[in-house]
Amino acid sequence: MTLRMPEPLFAALGLAVTLLVAATIGASVSTRIRRPLRDAEVRLRIRMWWFIVAGFFMALVLDRRLSVVALGLVSFVAFKEFLTLAPTRRADNKVLLWAYLAIPLQYFWAGSGVYGIFSVFIPVYLFLLLPIRMALVGDTHGFLRSVGVIHWGLMTTVFCVSHLAFMLALPDLPGLKNSGVSLLFYLVVLTQLNDTAHYLVNRRFGRHPVLATVRPGLSIEGMAAGIALTTLAGVALAPWFTPFTWAQAVIAGLLIGLFGFLGFVATAAIERDLGVRESGHFLPGHGGLLERLDSLMFSAPLFFHFAYDQFYR
């Protein structure tokens, strides 16, 4: 009789659930002792992890298409958040309707795993279609700015995020069960680890400020610790969740660590420009979801193309 080892993915999710139960209990106990404000941040993070784990279980146990739909809803809410914060003109409402209609289509391409149309639908077709529709409305005042706002929102919150859904549709590689879901898990865990390490080290050991005009409180220490830890974890987790050699894992870890950080910085610059951060909201509808997605929006397409070029071409 041979003892069957559970698949790494299931083991990891089981572990995640155990940790989350502990964290949820811990957070509810500590709320009564410590100041509530910092706990709100912690509780939001725990809640987000519950959603992430639920999404992975849905993909593994129920149906991948459900997770694709769930990710489509994430894009919908994130795009809506972005447009609520960014300036648009009344004349743009007709254009915005088209932009919203692109979300189900993009996720349909992603879910069906059609690489060609998936990768050009928004960057080519909608890129050209939206300004045409906007010109047909006829209001030229503030045109360029407005079309830029809509394009940025669509590219980041829909196109970039939809790469997560496309990964779910990837076929299995030899020797790696549930390849797509495993790669996605690897990406999400590393990106979140990068965020958390960066946040904690920044708070505790941040001495040398970096990019203070974009977001005060960023430090070289936080950035370096995030990238180093992410790369290490990338190498350590690669044998279980990816087909990567150790050299490929180093590159993947560096990609996720560095561009997760840079994505965070780029999003912070936009938040600053819109005057969002100053008002200090992290509620849904006030940039709450965008704030959770910022680094993932940048690391997802880069990691995806790295993995895709190596193993799926």
Binding site: R90, N93, L96, G285
Partner: peptide, 20 residues
């Protein structure tokens, strides 16, 4: 706040925006 942005006078399809 936000409902006029979503569906102001003269329009009849609500565009998604968060509302306060």
């Amino acid at each position: 706040r936000g409902l006029g942005k979503s569906m102001g006078k003269g329009t009849f399809i609500p565009i998604p925006f968060f509302v306060d």
